[in-house]
Design a protein around this nucleic acid. Structure first.
Length: 509
RNA sequence: GGGCCAUUAGCUCAAUUGGCAGAGCAACGGACUCUUAAUCCGCAGGUUGAAGGUUCGAUUCCUUCAUGGCCCA
């Protein structure tokens, strides 16, 4: 950085924060005033006995006379989301982790010392309240406070109450603020947790074993992608962050764990978009003595059950679409897709000039140098991918783009593989696994050759994986599902960043 | 990597052809014992993302940069 830049930037920062600083200064002064009154502004001794949502659930139907006749004591704590002052009555909207419950502060019902705290109370503070349940004249179930504590003094002002926080950069950088003020964001991540929980239960119930395999790998593989590189100092060893757990999971199948799965992070050193974050979460599962067709059935069951578990129906709204997860899902072979969507005649799907013509028509560039299978997939993706809105199994992929998949018995140029698409995006990828070790070795060799020819995403050789197959892997089918993309569908989120708590951004200046 | 768009008060947003930079919420001072985005009175808050340029005059036009968004690769 040029030496003259530093003072310019620091001056800009202090200027920008000048007003905010006055608010922080005011609030810090309030915290000091609380200390002077003998109140710890960061006390940790308030006893919480109730949660807002439980209180609402338990007393939803209790009317005002009943609450007066049989007083219900409540002690709860949460963040102040709104303060409405009417002289000797103050209404405070308090949000805890479960929901909101209004505290009604009456001057004649609170100790004088507690009432005095109102002078130092701001929206954003975390308070503890005890009192009895009541209903306001408008009927709101709320707490008539007989004790108020400021448990945590907040120094920074929250975003505006009605519009919340809109600026996406701030929402992602300061997710904690986003979560405080945007209810929908909290819901999204609650759904995400339920999705993962559902999947675990689904697989556990089917006797799959959950495992954890290395994220740091000396040899990466299992997908066509560029890895992150790192280095282990003690071993002086170059390492990669895994791009997929696939090869380790299949080693476990060789070892006798015939049903395994892993839900965890993968890393790909590639571009960022609404569909791509450099680190993302996948489910991968492998089942011995199964075929990719078995996995289509299993996938239908999983996604259908998941939609119903989350939304209560297999019809899921995503943007302008309604996705139907009713079984069975549509099936479409790559060749059918080339004909239907790319206008390639059915007898020309392996004809290079016909594919190049379609590629040119679709605006696919640099297609002419790629092996046939890559060309077919580039044309397919350009023509069809964005149109596959309803859940669709795309089947029968070319061999060249599937170096770990089993060849079709009926056509050795194709493999027993499918990808599941929904909302115009790939959600998952599955195949009958290649367990012929000699075939696998030669597939790796051709990958290495493609790599040498400039394909940075081609697989490197993995001798140990071939050695594992030489011991014999039972016939197996395996699948990977992008958890982030799946959660996007189930939470109606347009960007992957909406379903990742802390998506990657450039550091702040 | 390329194209387009955006960046104005803590937050959400205005600002006519290049002519005094505004509002709501939040804050601050005050009134108010039933509000639900409470209401009312008052007050304060800005080097308009950064650096240059054109101009008597720039939030506005031009260049570069930064950050973000969308589309394409």
């Amino acid at each position: 950085m040029p030496p003259f830049a530093a003072p310019t930037r620091s001056r800009a920062r202090s200027r920008r924060c000048a007003v905010e600083d006055t608010i922080i200064t005011q609030r810090r002064a309030k915290a000091e005033a609380l200390r002077a009154l003998g109140h710890h502004p960061y006390a940790n001794d308030f006893v919480v006995t109730d949660r807002a949502s439980d209180v609402h659930a338990a007393h939803e139907g209790t009317d005002a006379p009943a609450l007066e006749a049989n007083p219900v004591r409540v002690g709860y704590a949460g963040r102040v989301m709104a303060i409405r002052t009417f002289g000797k009555v103050v209404f405070v909207v308090v949000a805890d982790a479960s929901g909101r419950l209004q505290a009604n502060l009456f001057a004649d019902a609170l100790p004088e010392a507690d009432w005095a705290l109102l002078d130092y109370l701001d929206v954003g503070d975390i308070i503890g309240v005890t009192g009895t349940l009541m209903r306001t004249r408008k009927g709101e179930l709320s707490v008539k406070a007989d004790h108020l504590r400021i448990v945590t003094k907040s120094l920074r002002p929250l975003p505006e109450k009605w519009h919340g926080l809109q600026d996406v950069a701030t929402r992602y950088r300061q997710r904690y603020v986003d979560l405080i003020v945007n209810e929908r964001v909290r819901d999204t991540f609650r759904v995400r947790a339920r999705v993962v929980q559902y999947i675990r239960r689904f697989l556990d119930d089917r006797d799959y074993l959950e495992v954890e395999t290395p994220m740091l790998q000396a040899v990466y593989g299992g997908a066509a992608a560029k890895p992150f590189s790192t280095h282990h100092n003690a071993l002086d060893l170059p390492l990669f962050l895994r791009i997929a757990p696939e090869l380790d999971l299949k080693r476990l199948v060789v070892g006798g764990f015939h049903r395994v799965y892993e839900i965890n992070r993968c890393f790909r050193n590639e571009g960022i978009s609404t569909k791509h974050n450099p680190e993302f979460t996948t489910l991968e599962f492998y089942q011995a003595f199964a075929t990719y067709e078995d996995l289509m059935t299993l996938t239908e069951e999983l996604l259908n059950g998941l939609a119903i578990a989350i939304h209560g129906t297999d019809q899921v709204t995503y943007g302008e679409h309604t996705l139907s997860f009713a079984r069975p899902f549509r099936r479409l072979s790559v060749y059918e897709g080339l004909t239907t969507y790319a206008g390639v005649p059915a007898d020309k799907v392996s004809d290079r000039p016909a594919l190049l013509e379609a590629a040119a028509r679709l605006g696919v560039t640099k297609a002419d140098t790629r092996p046939l299978g890559h060309l077919q997939m580039e044309v397919f993706e350009a023509a069809a991918e964005h149109l596959l809105v309803q859940p669709t199994f795309v089947t029968d992929f070319p061999l060249e783009v599937s170096p770990l998949s089993r060849k079709k018995d009926t056509d050795p140029t194709l493999v027993d593989r499918f990808e599941i698409y929904a909302a115009g995006r790939e959600i998952g990828n599955a195949f009958s696994e290649l367990n012929d070790s000699d075939d696998q070795r030669s597939r790796f060799e051709s990958q290495v050759a493609q790599r040498a020819a400039g394909d940075e995403e081609a697989h490197p050789m993995d001798d140990d994986y071939v050695r594992a197959l030489e011991y014999g892997m039972p016939p197996t089918a395996g699948e990977g599902i992008g958890i982030d993309r799946l959660v996007m569908l189930l939470t109606d989120s347009p960007s992957i960043r909406d379903v990742i708590l802390f998506p990657l951004l450039r550091p702040e200046g």
